[in-house]
C-alpha cells in the first residue's frame, strides 16, 4: 500500500513533466528576457545596452499617458465583460432550461459563436469601413433622417470606445455562452427535480443550484477574460491608426507597449517595463479574484470518492 502511494506520487510528476519541460524549453527564456530588459535602456537599433535600474519604471509612473492607458483598458474590459457575461448567462440558462424547451439550442449557440471565427484584422477592417465618414452607417442614418448630417464616428472619443466595446462583446459572448452551457448541462437533472418538489422557483434554482455548481467555469471565464482584457490589443490597434486615437480614447496597455517597441528605435527596454507592469497588475487582480471566490469546496472535491 505504501509502495502504491509512492508510485502514485511519482506519477504526479510524470504527468506534469511534459509541461515543465516544454515551459523550460520555450517559455522561460522569453519571460526572463522581458524581465531583464525592463531594467535596461535597450533598443533594437543599438547593439549595446546599459543597465539603468528602475529608471524605466520611474519614467513610466511620471507618464500620464500610462494612467490613461490603464484606465482605458479597465473601462473597455469592464464595459464589454458585464454585458458579455450577462447575455451569455441568459442564453445558457434559456438553452439548458428543460421547461422552456428552446428549439435547436445547439444551432443557436453555434451561430452565436461565429464572429469569433473571423480574423481580428478582417473584423477591424470591416467595422472601419462601416463607420467611416463616407461609410454606409452614415449613409443609412442620414437618408432615413435619423441624424441631420454625417458624423465622423471614428474621430469621436465616446463613439469609438463604444464601437470597440461592441466588437469585443460581439466576438466573445458566443464563446462564453458555450462555456457556461457546457457547465450547466453537466449539472444533474435530479438536483433540479428535487428542488421543484421542494417548491423552488426558477430564480432560486439558479441562485442555489446552478450558480454554485458552475463556479469553477465562472472563475475560468472571469480570469481568462480579465487576462485577455488587460492585454486587449488587436481590435483597438487595428480599428484606428494603431495609436489608440482619437485622443487616446482606445489606447490600451498593450498598444502603449507595442508603440514603444515599434518606435523607430525599437525601445524594447521601455516596452518591457510596461509588459512587466501589465503582468503585475493582472496577477494582482487575478489572485484577488481567486482569493474572493475561494471556497471550502476545493477541499471536498478531492475526497468526493
Amino acid at each position: 500500500m505504501v509502495h502504491n502511494k509512492i508510485r502514485r506520487i511519482n506519477h504526479g510528476y510524470l504527468f506534469v513533466a511534459p509541461f515543465i519541460i516544454g515551459f523550460l524549453l520555450f517559455g522561460l527564456y522569453p519571460v526572463y528576457n522581458t524581465l531583464s530588459l525592463s531594467f535596461t535602456d535597450a533598443t533594437l537599433m543599438k547593439v549595446d545596452s546599459n543597465f539603468i535600474g528602475l529608471k524605466n519604471f520611474e519614467r513610466l509612473f511620471q507618464d500620464k499617458t500610462f494612467l490613461t492607458a490603464v484606465t482605458n483598458t479597465w473601462e473597455l474590459w469592464i464595459m464589454n465583460f458585464i454585458p458579455q457575461l450577462g447575455i451569455a448567462m441568459l442564453l445558457a440558462v434559456w438553452f439548458t432550461d428543460v421547461r422552456l424547451k428552446i428549439k435547436a439550442g445547439g444551432v443557436w449557440r453555434m451561430l452565436f459563436y461565429m464572429p469569433n471565427l473571423l480574423m481580428p484584422a478582417a473584423i477591424a477592417a470591416l467595422y472601419f469601413s462601416l463607420f467611416s465618414y463616407y461609410g454606409p452607417v452614415n449613409q443609412f442614418l442620414v437618408r432615413s433622417n435619423l441624424i441631420p448630417e454625417a458624423i465622423d464616428f471614428l474621430r469621436n472619443k465616446e463613439i469609438t470606445r463604444a464601437i470597440v466595446v461592441f466588437i469585443q462583446w460581439w466576438m466573445w459572448y458566443g464563446q462564453t455562452t458555450i462555456l457556461l452551457m457546457a457547465a450547466m448541462t453537466s449539472i444533474s437533472i435530479s438536483l433540479y427535480e428535487a428542488a421543484v418538489i421542494d417548491g423552488a422557483n426558477s430564480w432560486k434554482m439558479f441562485r442555489y443550484i446552478t450558480l454554485p455548481l458552475i463556479k469553477p467555469v465562472m472563475i475560468y471565464i472571469l480570469v481568462t477574460s480579465l487576462v485577455g482584457g488587460m492585454q486587449m490589443f488587436d481590435i483597438p490597434m487595428l480599428l484606428t491608426d494603431g495609436r489608440g486615437s482619437p485622443a487616446n480614447a482606445i489606447l490600451t496597455n498593450n498598444i502603449m507597449m507595442y508603440m514603444r517597441f515599434r518606435s523607430s528605435q525599437g525601445h524594447i527596454g521601455a516596452a518591457s517595463t510596461i509588459g512587466v507592469m501589465i503582468f503585475i497588475m493582472t496577477t494582482f487582480v487575478a489572485l484577488l479574484i481567486f482569493y474572493l471566490l475561494r471556497e471550502k469546496h476545493d477541499d471536498f472535491k478531492g475526497k468526493s470518492g
Binding site: F19, F23, F26, G27, Y29, P30, V31, N33, T34, L37, L44, V223, T224, V227, M230, Q231, F233, N253, N254, M257, Y258, F261, I268, A271, S272, G275, I278, F279, T282, T283, A286, L287, F290
Partner: peptide
C-alpha cells in the same frame, strides 16, 4: 506558477522568442 504564466503578455516576448 501556471496561473501566473497565464497572465504574461505575449506580444512583447515575441522578439526575444524569435532571437532565441
Amino acid at each position: 506558477s501556471i496561473l501566473v504564466l497565464v497572465m504574461i503578455p505575449m506580444q512583447l516576448s515575441i522578439i526575444g522568442f524569435y532571437q532565441y
